[in-house]
Amino acid sequence: MDLRQLKYFVQIAESGNFSRAAEVLRIAQPSLSQQMKNLEDELGVDLLLRHARGVTPTEIGQQFYEHARRILQEVERTREVVRSQTLNPSGKVSVGLPTSACRGLCLPLINAMAARQPNLTLHIVEAMTGYLDDFIQMGRLDVALLYDHKAFEHVAWTEMMVEELMLFAPPDHPVVAQGQVVFADMFKLPIVLPGAPNVMRTVIEQFAARHDVMPNALACDSLPAIARMVGDRRALAVMPHFAFTDEMARGEMVAIPIVDPTPSWRLSVVVSQRTMNPRGSEAVAKVLADVIAELVGAGIWHARLRGERARGDHARAALR
């Protein structure tokens, strides 16, 4: 017995006639009759009473009809739930945002999700990108924004953009008057970076090694503490422009371009394939990618978009 036979039987019982039911079901009448014979043989009972005017359910056939109709209704409800989840995903999705981006990205993401995916609930986790990478691989995060992400088996990603790193100093620091700083000369100043194995530290050290530079720098994994060190003139920070937009707006810091050469890193929106809410995770990843592209397009986030987004197509954020 299968759902098709249940559907056929219900239609016959409601039509009261094999030929009329066959027309509705768009099946040949002999085939429909054979399906009902097979069903009755399998159950070992007569479900239909055949007569000159058509057919009517037997007493047990009427009971079978009630059960079959409820089963088909539940199947249709299940289909509708799945369709609804596809069009309007719901549930909780955990999103990892790196410390350098969380302050500027968190509120625009929350606002965009409320407008575009109101049935989804976000759980935002802020951490250094190295920790976020581990969390996404272990399935502890559904979606994350990662710097210089490496390919792993259980994740899918869309590379969003390239972001240049800059030197941050108090506005009255002598280096600000220079307008820029040469990469090698930068390390003659007191510099603070996140500690190893943070991606920022790895990017700078690998970049320095390729250019025969010794990257001498303090280690601190707290963005607020790094900001405090800059404000107190204890050290200058290397970060992306987006990390200290609030401090720059308040006139507490100045971003100085690093040149000859300029270090940079790539940002990717990453989705765990171990997520328990794949539809929701994909929806969040698309909104996250759109928000990032909008911030870059508005000049709030200083970066170069990759691929289609670099050509101004902010509507598509399909994961590879």
Score class of each variant (00 low, 15 high):
244 F>E: 03
299 G>I: 01
294 E>I: 06
198 N>C: 05
128 M>V: 00
270 V>N: 03
88 N>S: 08
152 F>A: 11
265 W>F: 12
74 E>I: 01
186 M>I: 00
156 A>F: 06
147 Y>N: 06
58 T>L: 05
79 R>S: 10
90 S>G: 07
118 P>Q: 08
306 R>K: 15
92 K>M: 12
204 I>R: 05
303 A>F: 10
161 M>D: 04
49 L>Q: 14
184 A>G: 06
223 L>Y: 02
316 R>V: 01
239 M>W: 02
75 V>E: 12
230 V>G: 01
140 R>V: 04
285 A>H: 02
96 G>A: 03
121 T>N: 11
3 L>W: 13
233 R>E: 08
212 D>R: 15
234 R>T: 00
134 D>T: 12
262 T>M: 14
287 V>K: 07
65 Y>C: 06
279 R>C: 02
164 E>F: 09
83 R>K: 11
24 V>D: 14
221 D>T: 06
93 V>S: 01
73 Q>T: 12
205 E>M: 02
234 R>A: 03
255 A>T: 12
101 A>H: 03
54 G>H: 11
277 N>A: 02
137 Q>G: 08
53 R>W: 10
257 P>W: 00
225 A>F: 03
141 L>A: 06
150 K>F: 11
28 A>T: 12
224 P>H: 03
8 Y>P: 04
190 P>S: 09
189 L>K: 07
308 E>P: 00
211 H>K: 15
194 P>W: 05
146 L>K: 11
309 R>Y: 08
58 T>N: 05
257 P>A: 13
151 A>Y: 12
293 A>S: 14
9 F>C: 00
175 V>E: 14
246 D>N: 09
237 A>I: 09
77 R>C: 07
83 R>C: 01
218 L>K: 10
57 P>V: 05
287 V>L: 06
7 K>F: 11
295 L>H: 08
140 R>W: 08
37 K>Y: 13
207 F>Q: 08
252 E>Q: 15
262 T>G: 13
261 P>N: 06
259 V>Q: 03
2 D>A: 05
16 G>F: 12
181 V>G: 12
123 H>E: 15
167 L>E: 11
45 V>S: 09
8 Y>V: 02
77 R>D: 13
110 I>E: 13
314 H>I: 14
258 I>A: 11
61 G>Y: 07
3 L>K: 09
262 T>N: 15
41 D>N: 10
172 D>R: 15
191 I>P: 00
251 G>N: 10
49 L>W: 14
80 E>W: 09
20 R>M: 14
240 P>R: 09
159 E>Y: 12
91 G>N: 03
221 D>F: 01
165 L>N: 00
203 V>G: 01
256 I>F: 14
176 V>I: 10
203 V>E: 05
194 P>H: 06
285 A>P: 07
304 R>Y: 06
102 C>Y: 02
156 A>Y: 04
78 T>Q: 13
119 N>Q: 10
62 Q>P: 01
97 L>M: 04
145 L>E: 02
306 R>G: 00
159 E>P: 12
164 E>N: 14
316 R>S: 12
74 E>F: 04
28 A>C: 07
78 T>S: 15
93 V>T: 03
300 I>G: 00
61 G>P: 10
194 P>Y: 07
299 G>M: 09
180 Q>M: 14
